[in-house]
Simulated scan of single mutants.
Amino acid sequence: MPPGKQPTLRQRRLGAELRKLRDRAGLSTNQAASRLGVNQSRVSNIEAGRYAVGPDRVRAIARNYACADYSLIEALVGMTGGRTRGWWEEYRGLLPHGLLDLAEVEHHAAALRVAQALHIPGLLQTAQHARALFGDAVPPLLPHEIEHRQSFRIKRQAVLYGDAPLRYTAVIHEAALRMQVGGPTVAAEQLAHLAEMSQLDNVTVLVIPFGRGAFPGSGQGLDYASGPVAQLDTVQIDTEHGSEFIDAAAQLERYRTVLDRLEALALSAEKSRALIHQAAARA
């Protein structure tokens, strides 16, 4: 099977984790190739996510690398195969790759924790709120680009519903509740929707009020997706130039600590909902 031309984030992550196993085993790519009975370029392509591997191959790699963490091995096995043909694939070529990667991460996450200082998290936005945000993008988006991004954002929200909805915890600063995105009517509808979503069994919305003062982090959007094992967690950061994905162990620990502190600063879910209703009444 030839190497894939455009590996997804999930394929790249699988390759990166296999590379970590090789590094822990103290093996060069040549040594690993010899043990696996393949050439060096095959090992390099696998580790770059350009070559799809199956469950048996992953188990063989782990065995040859002397990995005894069976929970991790089986989690990696769950990541095997070619590109996941998820719903987001229909947007390939229409939207930046980072957005497709985010949808794929959310789809496979065991749970999701997010933090936003100035915006309502994307999975909790109404269509009109999202449209207003995209309408203010720099550089400006064309009308059809706004439509694609709006529909994509709404489709991402499906992970919060269904038979196995994603466990979702969102920490929002009160500033985000006071932003008049799209004008008073759109803002009021957004806050009503946020309060309604906060009552779902799998959704927790926590608000940090102005009175709490300083809070950790830079205020940029943060998504923390839990994997089947902690080593496979993923952090996504919003930046002006697009999404940045982080999976280094030290950084994962740092962002877990940031989220823990943010959640500790926030009001309880019940008091947060009351503050959302209060903001809606003033919108």
Rank of each mutant, 00 (worst) to 15 (best):
H97G: 07
R83C: 09
L252G: 11
G217A: 14
G98F: 01
E89C: 11
R256Q: 14
L99F: 14
K155G: 14
V203W: 03
M79W: 00
L102I: 06
Q116Y: 15
G82R: 10
H173T: 04
Q199S: 09
R156F: 08
A248K: 15
S272F: 02
P228T: 07
Y91H: 08
G98H: 07
L118S: 13
E145T: 11
C67H: 00
Q31W: 09
S272I: 00
R83Q: 10
D260A: 13
R63I: 00
N30A: 15
A269C: 07
R92F: 05
I46D: 00
P184I: 06
N39C: 09
V186N: 05
G15W: 00
L262W: 02
P143H: 11
I237S: 03
D69S: 07
L133W: 09
E253W: 09
Q236D: 13
Y65F: 14
L118A: 14
Y65W: 10
F245H: 11
F134D: 04
E244F: 13
R153D: 05
L200G: 04
S243K: 14
G162H: 09
K5R: 15
L160V: 06
H173R: 04
A281C: 08
S198P: 04
A266F: 03
H129E: 07
S218C: 12
R178I: 07
F215M: 12
A132T: 03
A264P: 12
A68S: 14
L118V: 10
G98S: 12
E263H: 06
D201L: 12
D233F: 01
L232M: 04
D23F: 10
L36Y: 03
R92I: 04
F245S: 07
A60E: 05
R256H: 06
F215S: 08
Y161V: 12
A32F: 03
L177M: 13
H241M: 15
V138L: 13
C67K: 01
Q31I: 07
Q128A: 09
L191N: 00
Y224W: 09
L112Y: 00
L177F: 06
A225Q: 04
I73P: 00
L21S: 02
A103V: 05
A175R: 07
A274H: 07
A33M: 09
E145R: 03
F215H: 15
E270Y: 08
A248Q: 15
G227A: 02
G182N: 09
H119K: 12
L124A: 04
R113F: 11
Y224K: 02
E196Q: 14
A250Y: 11
R12A: 08
Y161Q: 15
A250E: 15
V38T: 10
L232F: 02
